[in-house]
Design a protein around this nucleic acid. Structure first.
Lengths: 142, 142
DNA sequence: TCATTTATGCAACAAAGTTGCATAAATGTA
DNA sequence: TACATTTATGCAACTTTGTTGCATAAATGA
């Protein structure tokens, strides 16, 4: 990882008023390196068991609270997380996310440049947040 | 529950080549009565602890396999299930589902009559299944 | 009613997530 | 740079959730 990226990680933490610790930097590095969405169990594995399970839980929760990451809906009992784009913030996190899960490689990625189409809800329903999870085959696995 | 509904439950089970047992009938009744999506833990509670935890797991898995129910993506560690429409079947379950989760009452429902719009994926991506989860405020809670 | 198939419930286990508390590390200030 | 204060971490113990094997019970077809 380049120094430039490392610098931006500390900037991210500082911007959220979080102290800079090994765990937080490492977990953010993993997000950046993976270029996609990670599930909870990945962190303990990827980090080579270098930090405690509890710390991972608390770190991810902190990042969620601060709007640094967001969770992606899954149909199993895992939770997947991905880095938020810069326009996410702590108090206004009503983005419309599109996520793509590849059935071949298992990777989940955010399709940041794809727009969420308008959805016609029945009368009386008010939408707040829209999560779209598309599964299929990704560019690499095709 | 009316006899008519009870009769249709046994029909559903028979149509999937499943033997008719108390557990299966009861769980299907809960689905119909709830008029929405239930998460795993609900069944043990709603059924008044009348059957074993293991049985619930196995029954839901069986219903999933047979295409009687489908799972709904969530951003937590729970799995939500909902009854499938009649056009779902065991081997062809590639529907495009829209689910609405109310942030007030917590209920999740299937919006069967709402169509999933076309989504423009980046080049090279092939979509197989699309899950849309809209959260907001439902008709009743407005 | 009976034999066969299938589902259920129990026990024991494995995995995932949580809480309290003592220690260690990060931060701001002098 | 050193110190006091705040904050994060790691450990232990625990709770909850999900799984597996096996004996018993119930459902089915003849």
């Amino acid at each position: 990882m380049s120094n430039k990226t490392k610098a931006s990680i500390t900037d991210m933490l500082r911007a959220s008023n979080l102290s800079i610790t090994d765990t937080r930097v490492k977990i953010l590095e993993l997000f950046i390196d993976s270029n996609g969405a990670l599930e909870h169990s990945s962190f303990e594995k990827l980090a080579g068991h270098s930090f405690d399970r509890v710390t991972v839980y608390r770190t991810l929760q902190t990042f969620l609270d601060k709007g640094i990451i967001h969770s992606i809906p899954t149909t199993d009992t895992s939770i997947r997380y991905a880095l938020c784009k810069s326009d996410c913030s702590e108090h206004d996190h009503h983005d419309h996310h599109i996520h793509f899960k590849c059935e071949e490689c298992g990777n989940t990625i955010c399709l940041d440049d794809t727009t969420v189409p308008e959805i016609q809800l029945p009368k009386g329903y008010a939408a707040h947040n829209i999560d779209v999870v598309v599964s299929g085959v990704c560019k690499e696995c095709k």
